[in-house]
């Protein structure tokens, strides 16, 4: 299987008033048409890694990499215009909270169809038909009404399904899901995840699933990268999670309660400054 995405020695630096801060420090991984999980706590650099692939780091952030290739295209070399042609139809991203990631003053329908109309030059009726299909694919029951709704009129679960529908309309090769269920109620998390899972599987796209929840990621992914302070500290196959060697990974596993498990206080997460070193 040829690689969809190759990243070697990715560094993202933010120049702040107190000097440069490296949010991502030498991350390397390869991705085929598979599901890769990236796990870490807040500030570990997982979101920045995801957004670097889309080259959507706002200044003063800088992206540097020895190699960043998507399907044979050198992402570090291409112009912004060429990059824009990749965003959407080839690489897409689902973000954390639909409350913020959908435009509050545009109807859902307008947000779903704008790519089809602008990029694919479809007529209004055709674009609308495709958008409704996309909403049906994420199991929204009354898509006609949702098309006419504004984002604030949708529940979180609905909003996130709209977001997924919107990102999957152009059928991208790679989807980056950045904490796609963290802002949702626990009861709808599973539903949204299974919809996402089904679509990604059916369409055979590559998935980068970013989360702080190691067990969740392990359920949906083939491989898991564990990040700590901007570096990858361990890579494990999802099935072999229990055999993870790195103490940080074990810490992430043990800091979650289990139903029926022991009621002893949960252990805190160990953070050893040494793990952050090369």
């Amino acid at each position: 299987m040829s690689d969809l995405l190759t990243i070697r020695d990715l560094r993202v630096t933010f120049d702040t008033e107190t000097g440069p801060v490296e949010a991502v420090r030498g991350v390397s991984f390869r991705l085929g048409r598979e599901r890769l999980g990236i796990v870490g706590e807040s500030g570990s650099g997982k979101t920045i890694t995801g957004r670097s692939v889309l080259r959507l780091i706002r200044p003063p952030g800088r992206i540097e990499a020895a190699e960043m290739t998507f399907d044979g295209i050198d992402l570090t070399r291409i112009s912004e215009r060429e990059m824009r042609a990749l965003r959407g139809p080839r690489i897409a991203m689902v973000m954390q909270d639909p409350k913020y990631s959908l435009n509050p003053v545009m109807k859902v329908g307008a947000q779903l169809t704008e790519g089809l109309r602008l990029r694919d030059r479809l007529g209004a009726a055709e674009a609308r038909r495709k958008a409704i299909e996309a909403l049906e694919a994420v199991q929204i029951r009354d898509p006609e009404r949702v098309m006419e709704a504004y984002p604030h009129e949708l529940s979180g679960g609905m909003g996130q399904r709209v977001m997924i529908a919107m990102m999957l309309i152009p059928n991208p090769d790679l989807l980056i899901a950045d904490e796609p269920t963290s802002a949702l109620d626990v009861t709808v998390q599973a539903e949204v995840l299974s919809i996402l899972d089904g679509l990604v599987r059916d369409r055979g796209m590559g998935l980068i699933f970013i989360s702080h929840d190691l067990r969740l990621v392990a359920r949906f992914c083939d491989r898991v990268l564990v990040m700590y302070k901007g570096r990858i500290v361990e890579e494990v196959a999802a099935g072999e999670l229990t055999r993870a060697k790195h103490p940080y990974t074990q810490g992430l596993l043990n800091c979650l309660p289990r139903i029926g498990g022991s009621r002893a206080p949960l252990p805190g997460l160990d953070r050893d400054a040494d793990w952050a070193r090369a």
């Binding site: 959507l56 990749l86 965003r87 909270d97 913020y100 990631s101 435009n103 704008e114 602008l118 990029r119």
Partner: peptide, 23 residues
Amino acid sequence: EYITTARVKGMPEWRVIWVHALK
């Protein structure tokens, strides 16, 4: 964040600014 969404969708910068943000 919705600005990032528009960019992720590959919307041209003029549209991101003069339509999404300006609205």
